[in-house]
Write a protein that binds this DNA or RNA. Structure first.
Lengths: 239, 239
DNA sequence: CCTGCCCTCGCTATTTCTGGGGAGTTGATA
DNA sequence: TATCAACTCCCCAGAAATAGCGAGGGCAGG
């Protein structure tokens, strides 16, 4: 049983971690505090880069990366589509690949029970915080029921730290767009053609072109699609 | 001061909400329990649809929608780029539009302090949970420091409910893209022309076109720019 | 007062994208 | 084994976007 005090201690420890190694040792402590088989944090972006951290054996981690299990892991696939934390039993294990993956994971020391919290950050960043254990269904249901909130918080703090250590998220302060440029790019981003945008904004198509061009210039973009993509990923427009 | 018991009660109440109206009344209770000026939940999806819920005045909500303040609200823009909860003071209020927005919001009854938790769901769903109050900087710093964890949890539960009531994001709407489609859209998003993309991927331009078309179809996009924008905001590609 | 930025409009020519067809190979899944 | 999804290639005509040259009025800050 994890008390409020335990939780505070765990979160503080996570907050104080200063390196990825620190997160690694914190996760061992976390596993012992929660008294479960394994805990794991798994970070992935749409470019396919991964970072893992937790108490799984090195052999399993290597196997996972080597075989590119990311693509077939029902935990990853299932969590990617939902917001809610989920018990592994409720995921789709019907495919042959999934069942093979499951039995292999058990060979590598994973337990029969699992619970994962999906977390998302800016720019398509996606991470999973998972707890893994070996016990009966009833005991596991009790555990997850009891610790659901704690796990959400821990997942959040874990991800916060992982993001902090990842220099990927370069803010890249860019020049602000004028209101009309924002209008133009926004409408283009929702699929309007130039003629439609011009019509919507009640300006000539040529004027619109000037906006798009100046936005392209400000954003250092090579074409309209590029400009829209940059404006989106820099948060200058919201679609 | 909100005790652990208060928090549990709030979360339970949120869990038990069965309609959007239920969330609305829960948010009033929540505001009173936290003893702040306002609380607000603001949901946005990649199609540009919005849903708001909270204790802001109807007049302000209408004004916000009417003027499309979503596009200039520094809270939305700032939170869209980060994972961490953030104090409104730390956002970028330098633009003229932002300052006008701020003073107008105060006219409509908002306080001078604010704190927002960004939350993300599948398919580019993005939401904000905000607390707003009128007090000194020191008092606010104490409040946010003390309640940071609670606010994260409350935000999470709020979003969970809001997603539950919004059947918009059905799994079928989130067609996954094939690897080649991801390649194509990614390269387009960084400004390559079709000829360049085809060359980079070492395929014919016609083949590339097939990918773009099928990606457009899967994403329900009207043209290439739209497809790239949707893929970006749903986190299917990263630039 | 001038400089710079924002907003507005016009023309022509070229390049690029889109939409309509069709066809064959893999590989995994059922 | 059959089916489906993904991947690859081809033609053509019309629609749309880009590049190049212009122009002028308004509004703010140095």
């Amino acid at each position: 049983m994890v008390t409020q005090k335990h939780l505070e201690k765990i979160l503080e420890r996570l907050e104080q971690a200063e390196t990825l190694d620190g997160l690694q040792t914190a996760s061992v402590t976390l596993r012992d505090t929660l008294d479960v088989g394994h805990i794991a944090y798994h970070w992935v972006d749409s470019a396919g880069d991964q970072y893992g951290c937790g108490t799984y054996s090195i052999a399993w981690q290597e196997r996972y990366l080597d075989k590119n299990y990311l693509r077939i892991d029902p935990v990853v696939i299932g969590c990617y589509q939902r917001f809610h934390p989920v018990d592994w039993k409720r995921l789709d294990w019907s495919s042959k690949a999934a069942r093979a993956f499951l039995s292999e994971s058990i060979e590598y020391g994973l337990g029969n029970q699992g619970y994962s919290v999906p977390i998302r950050g800016p720019n398509g960043q996606f991470a999973l915080f998972s707890v893994n254990h070996s016990c009966s269904d009833e005991a596991w249901a009790d555990f997850t029921e009891l610790h659901r909130r704690d796990l959400i918080l821990i997942a959040h703090y874990f991800n916060e730290k992982a993001l902090e250590f990842e220099p990927e998220r370069t803010p890249e302060q860019s020049q602000a767009l004028s209101p009309r440029e924002v209008d133009a790019l926004t409408l283009l981003a929702i699929g309007y053609s130039r003629a439609q945008v011009a019509n919507t904004l009640a300006i000539s198509e040529h004027t619109l072109r000037v906006y798009i061009e100046s936005a392209r210039f400000k954003l250092g973009a090579l074409n309209t699609t590029h400009a829209v993509a940059r404006a989106l990923s820099r948060g200058l427009i919201v679609v």
